[in-house]
């Protein structure tokens, strides 16, 4: 999602700031961010996906970041991954549509999709409200089983602090 995050800020500053100032999405988004970050190991990709890992690094939950969700604008449909599919890091596993754009969601690491968040099909806007919430009713996209390769792939991802720094400077590239 690197592309969208940038383009919207350049092209539609009004839309971007409108999302930031939204009284609904802002507080909820903040809450989910802080709650989940303390409960699990969370990593981010440069393309703005996140993955939460269980303590034993055998399973995880993934989604798109709050930064990306804000930049995307109103999400009107989510193409969910196929359950049971095994994917490599960077593979397109689904997509989100907003503002006429179908943007791929990519697997942050090698993994097997074990469960998808069907709530998003009915309420795609959940991603705008609580993008980084991995609990019931949250905007997470899929639960996954992590392969050996997947554990190695983790080294290429950023932790929360590094990602915050990355998004802060992204517009300057």
């Amino acid at each position: 999602m690197a592309s969208i995050a940038r383009c919207l800020r350049v092209a539609r500053p009004s839309a971007f700031s409108a999302v930031i100032q939204s009284p609904v999405s802002r507080p909820i988004g903040l809450r989910s961010f802080s709650v989940t970050a303390t409960n699990a190991i969370r990593k981010y990709t440069k393309e703005h996906e996140w993955i939460d890992l269980s303590a034993d690094k055998k399973t995880g939950v993934l989604g798109i970041s709050e930064y990306a969700a804000k930049a995307l604008g109103d999400i009107v449909y989510v193409e969910l991954p196929d359950e049971g599919r095994e994917v490599a890091a960077g593979d397109a596993i689904g997509a989100v549509e907003s503002v006429k754009s179908a943007a791929d969601i990519n697997a942050p690491i090698a993994c097997k999709i074990t469960q998808i968040n069907t709530l998003l099909e009915e309420k795609p806007g959940t991603i705008n409200q609580v993008p980084e919430d991995d609990s019931h009713g949250g905007g997470w996209i899929a639960k996954v089983q992590i392969t050996e390769q997947g554990v190695q792939d983790l080294e290429n991802l950023m932790d929360t602090a590094a990602y915050a720094e990355f998004t802060a400077t992204e517009g300057d590239h």
């Binding site: 592309s3 383009c7 006429k100 179908a102 791929d104």
Partner: peptide
């Protein structure tokens, strides 16, 4: 009319 497809590496 415009439409977009965004992949990991291309837009």
């Amino acid at each position: 009319g415009s439409a977009y497809k965004l992949t990991r590496t291309r837009s």
